[in-house]
Amino acid sequence: MTRPPGAAPESGQVPGGDGVDREWTLAELAAAYAYPEPPPGTPEPWLRANMVSSLDGAAQHEGRSQPLSCAADMRIFGTLRGLADAVVVGAETVRQEEYGPARAREAFAARRKAAGQGPAPAIAVVSAGLDLDFSLPLFTSPLVPTLVLTGAAAPPDRVARAEKAGARVVVAGDGASVDPARAVRALADLGMTRLLTEGGPRLLGQLVAAGVLDEMCLTVSPMLAAGDAQRIASGPPVAVPRRFALASLLEEDGFLFGRYCRT
């Protein structure tokens, strides 16, 4: 991770002002991406998204986001996971990206312990139909039990299979679908207030439309993908586009790493 000469710390750069381009340490990244301090009383959830986009707006190439990524992007990806209580992800992304359970990282062990967190974030899968392979390690052998967020009308046999595999099923909707606001509140009620979503585009679109997204961490990849790939968010529109404020902007090898917070 690099910075221009004389960059100011409030622009998301390493303090010091020595003008030397260098890789950020994990501790510096953790400080730069720290969650805001919760207000007194009942802690409110803070939901951030982490997505990658090509220059021409593609969120994926051949169905996966990895071809648009880079080493620095993966370090930020790991940092955001290292700070989160739970990672919220859509069922289709679990299938396409071949999700496994989150792992414990020694670099974040002390920080997580001091924050009262477990050794790794829980993965919270949003799925109405529960069309998931419950024999995968994500469900059978996670370090922290995987959560499945679904609606009250989810197929009972699949609910039973999820629970038998060791997943915790959380109802966050009265019908077949999941209510984004209820899902966020349900996680907060379980003590998971530092939330991270990694999409996919349909889930992110639902979260945006519901007005529950607090922060967007966006990697802009210096690549052109063309084709018909999805944008980072798709689904229902909002009546008026919501304005977010730039909190920090980092750069490495032409990749831009922006952090935007709701105003």
Score class of each variant (00 low, 15 high):
148 V>C: 02
182 R>A: 13
8 A>M: 13
218 L>Q: 05
150 T>G: 10
252 E>D: 15
222 P>K: 05
89 V>R: 08
35 Y>R: 10
206 Q>A: 14
113 K>C: 01
234 S>I: 09
54 S>G: 06
202 R>E: 08
231 R>E: 08
61 H>S: 01
46 W>N: 14
221 S>K: 03
136 L>T: 12
24 W>P: 11
178 V>K: 11
77 F>A: 10
133 D>P: 03
93 T>P: 00
207 L>F: 14
86 A>Y: 02
240 V>R: 13
252 E>Y: 06
17 G>P: 00
137 P>Y: 03
76 I>K: 00
62 E>R: 09
155 P>Y: 08
165 A>I: 08
171 V>Y: 12
82 G>R: 07
19 G>I: 15
47 L>Q: 06
248 S>N: 13
42 T>S: 13
214 D>Y: 12
49 A>E: 10
143 L>F: 04
259 R>Y: 01
189 D>K: 07
52 V>G: 02
176 A>H: 15
140 T>D: 05
185 R>A: 15
192 M>C: 07
243 R>C: 10
232 I>Y: 06
231 R>A: 15
116 G>T: 06
154 A>K: 12
225 A>M: 10
180 P>L: 14
37 E>Q: 15
14 V>C: 12
96 Q>P: 00
220 V>S: 01
122 A>S: 11
249 L>G: 04
53 S>G: 07
239 A>M: 08
141 S>M: 04
207 L>C: 13
143 L>A: 15
26 L>A: 10
147 L>A: 04
95 R>V: 05
42 T>H: 11
90 G>K: 01
221 S>T: 02
143 L>W: 01
4 P>F: 02
72 A>S: 14
256 L>G: 08
178 V>F: 13
92 E>K: 12
218 L>S: 10
149 L>D: 12
148 V>H: 09
58 A>D: 07
248 S>L: 14
137 P>E: 06
76 I>G: 05
204 L>M: 10
162 A>W: 10
224 L>T: 13
54 S>Q: 05
117 Q>K: 11
262 R>Y: 09
135 S>P: 02
215 E>A: 09
148 V>G: 02
107 A>W: 13
153 A>I: 00
45 P>G: 09
253 D>H: 13
192 M>T: 02
251 E>M: 08
172 A>M: 12
212 V>Y: 09
25 T>Y: 10
233 A>E: 05
245 A>E: 08
206 Q>W: 12
163 E>A: 07
111 R>N: 07
146 T>Q: 08
153 A>C: 08
146 T>W: 00
93 T>N: 01
94 V>D: 02
33 Y>M: 11
210 A>C: 05
257 F>E: 06
160 A>I: 04
143 L>S: 06
215 E>T: 04
231 R>H: 10
156 P>L: 13
20 V>M: 15
